[in-house]
Design a protein around this nucleic acid. Structure first.
Lengths: 204, 204
DNA sequence: TTTCGCCTCTTTCCAGCGTAAAGATTAGAA
DNA sequence: TTCTAATCTTTACGCTGGAAAGAGGCGAAA
């Protein structure tokens, strides 16, 4: 990612390059260890160059979080496409995609749900996170089409909370600290199954 | 908290004072806005004074997180004491205490579950967080005394995940962004009820 | 009681940080 | 070709966490 002779001054793709180097840097050093200067260094530009593309370090972090939400939505959709067409199958598959993304990008996942990235109300970050919520909400409602609006809301809360809470606690080491990766996946799957069962039972 | 004539040089209670000023500072500025120097300033000492009591800023943050876990355990116990003696009542009450603590100390709660505080395996932080887990695990097992060990584990995962996930998503604004505080409490209570019902149903 | 050593805190210093301002360079339009 | 705006570098500032050295105060040993 360092500057080449073919790009002696204008980088041309600096915004993209910063997002790329920023993402790896974030996973390597964590949120507190993330610095704008190191990010610029890895992109091969001076430490002040990012200022033109991002108003502040928080702005860059918000961009990373936004891209994270986009990718999370894609992971949920992709996993759902691989599952059978049943409503509960879709719901569980979405959860698998959600957890797999979180496990593969723990620091980014933490940033996305950390409130450190200042999400302006109408900003792209809020839209991207809303898209994930919509995806999940649709899956829950599809599983309980005849339920009342209130039940649907409660079951969406319930499904989202258990799915998110489980992987969050796993990443934190609060759950399955000594478990193998395989055993952990089984626990996750068991949780998603119990969640889906409850949703259809209450919402029937 | 500034230095008085009665304590011209030796502070005497500096460790405590730093933990106190650190806690308010954390809630005011968030994890990323937390600085050791401002913390020392508020305690009325020079910026290098904390070094004697805390090896690094991460060490101070770990102390704050540890105290947070102690307080969280106390909040869960206190709320459970106010509830009826039924096993599910205890489980729900613990959840209320958990959520109330998180809502009242959002930045601290986030720090506790942020992996930023480097939790050494055998450190006091790990012990304090383990105590909270034990408290919750005992409540779940008391609700399903005849269940197998595997079911108990799965239901502990399940209960902990939904409880933690819900309040985490609320703090993040992912759930109930427009709701009033009252409505939000109702949603939380509904979630805890659904959680407890599922635990006793599956574990029966 | 005096002295001495250790604990606690301050002062000073350093490199690194985010950000602002000004200068340099380039691309593309006129 | 020349001019202008966009992009990047250089420089500078106040802040940060931490290390090192010095000062002050307490308690034990004489």
């Amino acid at each position: 990612m360092s500057r080449q002779k073919s790009q002696p001054y204008h980088h041309g793709q600096l915004r993209e390059a910063l997002a790329t180097s920023g993402r790896t840097l974030l996973e390597e050093k964590g949120i507190r260890g993330f610095t704008l200067r190191e990010c610029a260094r890895r992109a091969g530009v001076s430490h002040a160059a990012p200022a033109y593309h991002f108003a502040s370090i928080d702005d860059l972090l918000a961009e990373l979080a936004t891209r994270g939400f986009d990718e999370l939505a894609a992971a949920m959709t992709a996993e759902a496409a691989r599952a059978d067409g049943s409503a509960t199958g879709q719901l569980v598959a979405q959860g698998i995609g959600y957890m797999a993304f979180a496990a593969g990008n723990p620091a980014l996942f933490q940033l996305m749900f950390s409130r450190e990235a200042n999400r302006l109300e109408a900003g792209p970050l809020a839209a991207a996170s809303e898209a994930v919520r919509a995806l999940h909400g649709a899956a829950v409602e599809a599983a309980i089409p005849h339920a009342s609006g209130e039940i649907k809301q409660r079951m969406t809360d319930f499904a989202g909370a258990s799915m998110h809470g489980f992987i969050a606690l796993v990443l934190e080491g609060e759950i399955g600290g000594k478990d193998s990766s395989r055993a952990l996946k089984a626990r996750g799957l068991a949780l998603l199954s119990a969640m889906a069962e409850t949703v259809v039972r209450v919402g029937a």
